[in-house]
């Protein structure tokens, strides 16, 4: 069961990182899908930042290697990273955004075009001449993101990029990342918090104590929690509701653990309140389980985890129609 719908942008093989005697990262095998948004989640100290730094070429691993999916695209020349704590250099927002372009020898005319484009994209063009002391935390974060986006990286790495943004900034960044994905960029976003970008994830990777947790995957979707006919519904879009039990109203994020989702070919009667039909878009076998990606609707992909045995018995294949079932009580909602 190794067929995949996408090519890996990069593959991590037998990667370990030690800080002194301490093993902080141990990833035997991980492929990052090209043209997808992969969200790396886990608690603080789980190794997310270390992994991103290795991918960005900022940290040399103790062992293992990063193999580019395309031998013609060398890493880290085509990799851009937005670091966890955004800092700006002395000078204007414009000179900051130009920094990486100057480092890479991009001609002045091209630099000007790219700077204008990313500043407008992130909604901070009016701050072009401002220096760091005159910017809010959110504006500094947007500038740091713009500085990396100006490099037009094939692989974009973001470390807790949503954490310094206000709701408007988060909305802008989500939109930008989705546009980049549509344009074919591969994006990896590390977060410890479900509100931080999980809603736009095509795939989640859970990291704990430096190791991938193959049995942990979180589906997150953005929408509105409403109360209708005595039931709590999370409305992803008109006609696509998930029932839940969290008594909160308003716009927010719903998350469902992938291991709480069961798959079947047909809709069966059960006590579970949520049944969604979708098509399999990815199948990935990791450490004795298969992570199944199911496209529910345009842009909404859920992930479920089944055993290898179940996947074989059900003869799961890409493009197959499948039914996802999960209980209302397994849906977590935050607004």
């Amino acid at each position: 069961m190794t067929d995949m719908p996408t090519f890996p942008a990069i593959r991590i093989e037998h990667l370990t990182v030690h800080f002194g005697d301490r093993l902080v990262l141990d990833i035997p095998d991980l492929a990052i899908d090209r043209g997808r948004i992969t969200v790396l989640f886990g608690p603080n100290g789980s190794g997310k930042t270390t992994l991103l730094h290795v991918l960005a070429g900022l940290l040399v691993p103790s062992s293992g290697r990063i193999v580019p999916g395309d031998a013609l695209v060398p890493l880290p020349d085509h990799t851009g990273i937005v670091l966890q704590r955004p800092v700006l250099f002395a000078g204007s927002v414009q000179s900051n955004v130009e920094y990486g372009l100057r480092c890479r020898g991009v001609p002045a005319a091209e630099r000007a075009l790219r700077v204008t484009r990313v500043l407008e994209w992130l909604g901070i063009d009016h701050k072009r001449q401002a220096t760091r002391r005159k910017l809010s935390g959110g504006e500094i974060q947007r500038t740091a993101i713009a500085r990396t986006l100006a490099l037009e990286p094939h692989l974009l790495l973001l470390d807790e990029a949503f954490s310094h943004l206000d709701p408007e900034g988060s909305r802008v960044l989500s939109g930008v990342l989705l546009e980049l994905r549509e344009a074919g960029s591969t994006i990896m976003l590390a977060t410890h918090d479900i509100s931080g970008g999980l809603a736009i994830a095509d795939r989640t990777v859970a990291l704990e104590s430096g190791r991938i947790q193959p049995h942990a995957a979180l589906n997150a979707v953005r929408g509105i929690s409403v109360r209708e006919n005595g039931r709590w519904l999370f409305r992803i879009r008109e006609g696509l509701d998930i029932e839940h039990t969290v008594a909160v109203e308003g716009r927010g994020i719903a998350s469902i653990d992938a291991s709480d989702i069961t798959l079947s070919r047909e809709i069966h009667e059960s006590s579970a309140r949520n049944r969604l039909r979708g098509a399999i878009v990815s199948l990935r076998e990791i450490s004795g389980v298969v992570r199944v990606g199911i496209g529910i609707d345009a842009g909404v992909v859920f992930e479920a985890i089944v055993t290898v045995h179940s996947a074989r018995e059900m003869a799961l294949g890409i493009g197959d129609t499948i039914v996802l079932t999960f209980k209302a009580s397994s849906v977590r909602v935050s607004v």
């Binding site: 900022l58 020349d77 851009g80 704590r85 800092v87 250099f89 002395a90 500085r147 990396t148 490099l151």
Partner: peptide, 25 residues
């Protein structure tokens, strides 16, 4: 701030540019 060095390196700064950047800071 040590993050300045990391940021400059992440943006592809050569050693000379890193020195000039930190000298300015």
């Amino acid at each position: 701030d040590p993050a300045l060095t990391l940021t400059a390196r992440s943006l592809g700064a050569s050693r000379l540019r890193l020195y000039l950047t930190l000298a300015r800071e």
